[in-house]
Nucleic acid binder design. Structure first.
Lengths: 331, 331
DNA sequence: ACCCTCCCGGAAAGCGGTTTCCAAGTCTGC
DNA sequence: GCAGACTTGGAAACCGCTTTCCGGGAGGGT
């Protein structure tokens, strides 16, 4: 590999001068030398060794993002938003996927800490297990003690800057909207009980129904993915006229289940989701859902993480109910 | 930040010993010292500085993946496959997104080179511009000269290990299958002419029709995304009974266009795509397409890149025609 | 003309690890 | 009981770059 020393030698200058020319410095270098160095670097095909730079500078230009599953469009959108924001700051992005294993999440924070990344972004729901959350908090705290910065998209459980989707309120608004259409008997495909995002959405929905004086919904737990929605849909009681799946991907699974059983949506049963995943906007029937500005949230989380010292910030992001054809008005 | 020296001091041992205990070495360290070092590291919350390790070892444990767009499920699947494979090898992943800008792609190779990543994976179609391809090749060659490894998913145009989806053959098989159902008048929503993947799929389709003695299809160029499919669908001639969109996402756009216009699929017109994107499997009507094992391809590309020296490998990956309800049999 | 800045080039000290090379034990086998 | 082979701990060189500190020369004010 070509080193800076090779370049300096070839250009007949010192290491210091070569460094100043090639890797941005506040100091000026005379035009003649500057040209010689640049030419030498070009001829030799010099590429700075960033590991060495990081070590010498004591700061890297990499950030880390930890997501559960990149093939889940929810996380893809979040990550994409953060990556665009990172790109505008000239930062590189390291991505880790946990596949919903909290231990993996902790391990990634540790690894990213070891990498001395500038910031760590944690995307995705926390789990309700205080032991796990506690260990993650510790790991993050250690990282931050060493000057690392961190932010999270999801629940404010980690003591770091947080972009928090208003899951409860979004679900509540959705419930009110659906009730406004005349529905009274609901089911919630609620996902795993320990997943805070799922639990919050479910709770917000239930509370709103309660406030409206409507009967409590049938709550069906299961996996937080397409197949979870599919399976859960098959357990929905006959009296239910409207099903709320706590995310869009589950809602699509539920729609598939109904389609296979010959149950018409929305004629026989209405279905709503949450997130407004872009890739699913062309689904038929079009999904009623709560829109979350995922890309912005990812970008915002990065901004928060990078912003200089100030008290820990928690930003609520409101969702917007989007009524589409998967839901019908009861006469 | 806690350094190895701090740990060594606290444990009362030398730097060398501390290093050997904490960061895997071939050499043994006595149980007593080992315990002391481990305890000290734990108490202090030591995290090795990977930049320093990379520098000292001359090898990093990071790989780079360059994709066009993470929110495109095609790339998400590819990246996910590669990331899983990387995780089993204990490698970290750096992801760059180019948003289909070839300059960005080159820039990323340069940056990843500077990072001295172990391997670079380039995912996604090449463009037919020899100048751009040439510069990318050069950049890759430089990287490889320095001991870097590279592989690509797409066309064998870069002189590196390649996992090449059999776009021509897949499209040809699809054409034959569709012709077998009695279709004779086709349109191809062909994407951008300079995009090799799109061009290959289009060409394979046309050639197969030609061999069957069928009339040449109407070819409509446009963007390679959902909106491109939507727009192109509106230009399809009235005589056409079957539309081939060169990827699934475009096909979904086309379906949306037809739906809006009240054209029934498959009754009035049949539509087929390419890729068999998982997220779209629940689309209605279910999309006839050519299945590509995207995750495997991503994983395989990483394997190829990591494998020790041997001649450059090019592996064809066959697609499998999947007939679903978006296509009807002509009577 | 002289003194004081200011500017620019180079030498060298780190940054935080790894690893080679020594030296001092500790085991063996006879 | 002792030479020789192993094992284990430490000192120090080194990885490639940044940056401080110095010194010499040019420019400017009086």
């Amino acid at each position: 590999m070509v080193t800076l020393e090779d370049v300096a030698k070839q250009a007949g200058v010192s290491l210091a001068t070569a460094s100043r020319v090639l890797n941005g410095s506040t100091r000026q270098v005379g035009a003649a030398l500057r040209a010689r160095v640049e030419q030498a670097a070009d001829e030799l095909g010099y590429r700075a060794n960033i590991a060495a730079q990081t070590l010498a500078r004591g700061a890297s230009n990499v950030i880390g993002i930890v997501v559960h599953d990149l093939t889940d469009p929810y996380f893809a959108a979040l990550a994409d938003g953060a990556m665009r924001a990172a790109a505008t700051e000239g930062l590189l992005v390291m991505v880790g996927t946990t596949h919903r294993d909290p231990e993996q999440e902790i391990a990634y924070v540790r690894t990213l800490h070891a990498q001395r990344v500038r910031a760590v972004l944690l995307a995705g729901s926390r789990v309700a297990d205080p032991a796990v959350t506690g260990r993650l908090r510790e790991e993050l705290a250690r990282y931050q003690e060493g000057g690392g910065r961190a932010a999270c998209v999801g629940q404010d459980l980690l003591g770091v800057d947080t972009v928090a989707p208003a899951n409860r309120q979004g679900a509540a608004e959705l419930a009110r909207a659906l009730a406004g259409l005349g529905h009274t008997r609901f089911a919630v495909l609620a996902g795993p009980p320990h997943l805070v995002t799922a639990a919050d959405r479910c709770a917000g929905f239930r509370e709103a129904l309660d406030e409206l004086g409507l009967p409590a919904p049938q709550v069906i737990h299961g996996p937080f993915d397409r197949d979870g929605g599919y399976a859960a849909a098959n357990q929905v009681g006959a009296e239910v006229t409207c099903v709320f799946a706590v995310n869009d991907v589950m809602a699509v699974g539920a729609l598939a289940a109904y389609r296979e059983r010959g149950v018409r949506v929305p004629e026989d049963v209405s279905v709503a989701g949450f997130d407004d995943i872009v890739t699913l906007r062309d689904h038929v029937p079009a999904l009623t859902t709560v829109r979350l500005p995922l890309k912005d949230m990812g970008a915002r989380a990065l901004e928060l993480a990078l912003n200089e010292d100030r008290p820990v910030a928690v930003e609520q992001v409101a969702g917007e109910v989007v009524l589409r054809e998967s839901v019908r008005r009861m006469t």
